[in-house]
Design a protein around this nucleic acid. Structure first.
Lengths: 220, 220, 220, 220
DNA sequence: CATGAATGAGAGTTCATTCAT
DNA sequence: CATGAATGAACTCTCATTCAT
C-alpha cells in the first residue's frame, strides 16, 4: 500500500521529468519546472530522488527495465513463419519498444552524449551491443545479402545506426520520418533482407515477388 | 584590415566555444570557460557576440558556410570515371565535409535537438533536405539498386540517417565506428550502390583506409 | 497518570535534543535528527513543544530546575567539619551539579552566547549571580585569603570564571582538564582557600580522585 | 595596487562577517546578512572566499596573525623592572591582544566549540598551549606562590581558564566584567603572583606594602 | 579595444512545520 | 495520540552580463 503510493509518486515525477527534459534538456530544466509539471511542491521531489541527477539515472533505469521486459516476454511469433517474416516481426518488436521510450530517449540522449559515465553505464547496454538488436541484420543474412561484402563491424552497426539516425531526424522535427515510422519494419526488411523466393542461387536477377521483381544485384 | 582583426577574434572565440561546448555542452559551459580557452577576458566575448546564445548560432552559421563552400566548389572529379566512382567520390566529399565539422556537430547537436528555434532555423538546412546530400543515393541508383522499391521519402533519408546514426555512435564512444570512418564511402557504396557484375571484392574496403588516414579535417 | 506519560515523552525528547545539540549545535541540528534519536516521528515533537526553539528553552528550564533542587536539598554536611572542609564540600557539590548538566551546558552554551533573550532570561540566573555559587569563595575567606585585596566584583567572579574557563577548555577537547575534573574541588581549595599553617600536602589532590571517579552524574 | 584593493575587500568582508557571526552565530548568519553589512552584492563574497566556511577559517587566520604580530614585536619593557612588573606587563600585553580580537573571539568561539577540525587546527595554537600564555603563571612563581601545591597541569591552566571564563561572562552580558577589564592585569597579578617585599622567607605574615599589607598565607 | 571586479537573478537543495490519515 | 508525506520559504552558491577603468 505504502510502497504502491511511493511508486506512483516516483512515476509521476519521472513522467514529468521526461517531459521537461525532452523539452528543455537536462541542464536547462529546473527542478521547479518538473515539480510544477508533476503538480507537486519543489521539495517533494527530494523525498523520492536524491537530486536532479538521480532523476536522469532513474529515467534510464526505467527505460532499461521496460526494454528488458519487452525482450524477455516477446509476443508469440507464428511458428511456421518463414525467416523473413520472423525477421520483420522481431524488427517490429524492437521498433515498438523503441517507440515506447521515444520520449524518454529524446529526453535523455542529448545529455548522455556528453556524460562518459552515463554512456558507459547505460548506453552500451541500451544501444549498439544490445543483444538481438544488431543480430537480425547479420544473422539472417544469407550469402546473397547486400551486406555480404561489408566489413562485419559496419554491417553490425547498420541497423542501430539507421535507427539512431532516423530517431535524430525525428527529434530534429522531420515530420516525414514520423509518418514513415510504422512502415519502417517492412521497409527496412526490404532494404536489408530482401525476400528470396528460391534457394540460394549464385546467379540470376530473378523476379522473386510481384512487388520486388527485378530487385537486388543481378550477379554476384 | 580592422574587419580582419575582428574576424580573427571571432574565430578565436568560436573555436574555443566549440571545444568547450563539445566537452561540456552548451548549458554546462560557462562564459568564463570559453574566455579562458580563448585566452581572453570574460567580458571581451561580449564585444564580438551579443551573448552566449549568439555563440551557438554563430557556430551553426559557420558550419553552414563551410558546407556551402564545400558543395559549391567541389574538388575536380575524374571526368572519365564511371557512375559508381562518381558516386563514391561525391559521397567521400560529403563525408569529409562532415568530418571537418565533426567537433562542431558534437558541440552543437545535443542542444539543437531541443531548441525548436535552432532546429527550424538551421538544421533543416544543414541536414536532411540539404541539396545533394540525399540525391546521390537516389539519383545514381539504377534499376538494380536495393533502394528502388522503397518509399522515396525513406530512401531519401537512408543516407543522412545512416550517417547521423554512425555519428551518434561515435559520440557515444564506439571506437569501431571511429576506426571505420575512413572506409565509409566505399562501404556505403558497397551497400547501397552495389557494383555490377563483378565478383565479390572483400578487400576493397580495407584497402582504402591506409591512404585516407591522415586526411583528417582536410576539408575544414 | 496521563500527565506522567506526557512528562516521560518530554524527557525523552529533551534527552535526544541535548545529545544532538551537544553534537551539532542548535542550528545545525535538525528536528529529524532529534526525532530519530528519540525514536519518534518527526511531527510528534510538535505535540510536546511549540517548536524547535522551545526545545532550547525547555532544556534550560530543566537545567535550572535541577540546579535549584541540588541547592535546596544539599546533602548533609559533616557537622563537625572545619571551615575549609565545609568550603571544599560545598564546592564539590557545585561541581557535581555542574557535571550533571555538563552535556546540557555543552549543548546549550554556544547558542546562548548570542541570543540576548536566552541570556537575559536564563543565564544570569544560571551562572554568575547564582546564589551561593560565588559566595563560598568570598564568604568563607578569612583575613589571610588571597582574595582579600581584590576588587570584590572580581573576587566574586573568580570561581565562576575559572569554572567556565575550565569547562570551555574541556569542550575544546583538553583531555588534561577532563582528567583533573575530579580533583578540582581540592585543588581549587588549595588555590583560593589555602590551608592554614599546615605543611604542604602535595598528595592531597591526587588522593581524592579514586573515590570520586565513577560518581559521574550522581547529582543529575 | 590590485593586490591592495583585494586585501581591502577581504578585510571589509571579514569585518562584516565578524560582526554578523558575533551577533547571530555562524549558522544563523546568512551570506546575505554579511554581504549587506559589507555593502556588497551577495555574490561578491565568493570572489574573495571559497564559501561561507572559508570565511570562518579566514577570521581565525587573521586572529592568529594578529597574535603572532603582537607576540613577535613586544613593546619595549622597562629593562630594570623587577620580576613582578615584568609579569604584569606581559600579562597586560596578552590581555590587550585578547581584547583586540575580542569581537572575533566572540564571533568564532561558540562555533569552534563543536567543530573538531577547527579546534584541532586553530585553538590549540590560539589558546591553552599558546607559548607564553600559561608560562608567566608558572615560570614566575617562586616557592612561595599560591600555585606551588597545585597539580602542574592545573596551574598551567589557571590563567587561560580564568581568562576564558571572564570572557564568557562578558559574552554573556556581564557588565561588571566589562568594567573590570582594564584592571585585570593588576588584579590577576595580585591574585596569582603576590608581590614580595623581601627575600624568600618561609615564615611570617609580613606587611609588604601599604595596600597589600597582611596578605598571603602566613606560613607555608 | 580590452579588462575583470562587481552584480544579482535564479539555480539546487534543505528543513521547520503542518495536517490528513 | 502518533505518524510521516507534503509543503514552500529560505538558504548557499553560480554565472551571464555590465561597466568603470
Amino acid at each position: 500500500m505504502r510502497a504502491q503510493r511511493a511508486d506512483a509518486r516516483r512515476s509521476q515525477i519521472l513522467d514529468a521529468a521526461v517531459q521537461v527534459f525532452a523539452h528543455k534538456g537536462f541542464h536547462a530544466a529546473t527542478v521547479r519546472d518538473i515539480a510544477k509539471k508533476a503538480k507537486l511542491a519543489d521539495g517533494t521531489m527530494y523525498l523520492y530522488f536524491k537530486n536532479k541527477n538521480d532523476l536522469l539515472l532513474a529515467i534510464l533505469d526505467r527505460m532499461r527495465e521496460r526494454e528488458r521486459h519487452a525482450v524477455e516476454s516477446p509476443r508469440g511469433l507464428t511458428p511456421d513463419a518463414n525467416a523473413r517474416t520472423l525477421w520483420v516481426d522481431s524488427l517490429r518488436q524492437r521498433i515498438d519498444v523503441f517507440r515506447g521510450s521515444l520520449r524518454e530517449l529524446q529526453a535523455v540522449l542529448p545529455d548522455i552524449l556528453r556524460a562518459p559515465v552515463l554512456r558507459r553505464r547505460y548506453l552500451q547496454a541500451v544501444l549498439p551491443s544490445r543483444p538481438g538488436f544488431a543480430e537480425p541484420t547479420v544473422g539472417a543474412v544469407g550469402d546473397e545479402s547486400a551486406l555480404r561484402e561489408l566489413d562485419p563491424r559496419l554491417s553490425q552497426r547498420i541497423m542501430p545506426s539507421l535507427f539512431m539516425g532516423l530517431l535524430v531526424l525525428r527529434m530534429l522535427g522531420d515530420v516525414e520520418v514520423d509518418a514513415l515510422w510504422d512502415a519502417l519494419p517492412e521497409q527496412l526488411a526490404e532494404l536489408l533482407h530482401p525476400p528470396r523466393k528460391a534457394a540460394p542461387r549464385p546467379a540470376a536477377a530473378a523476379a522473386r515477388s510481384p512487388q520486388t521483381r527485378g530487385r537486388r544485384r543481378a550477379a554476384s
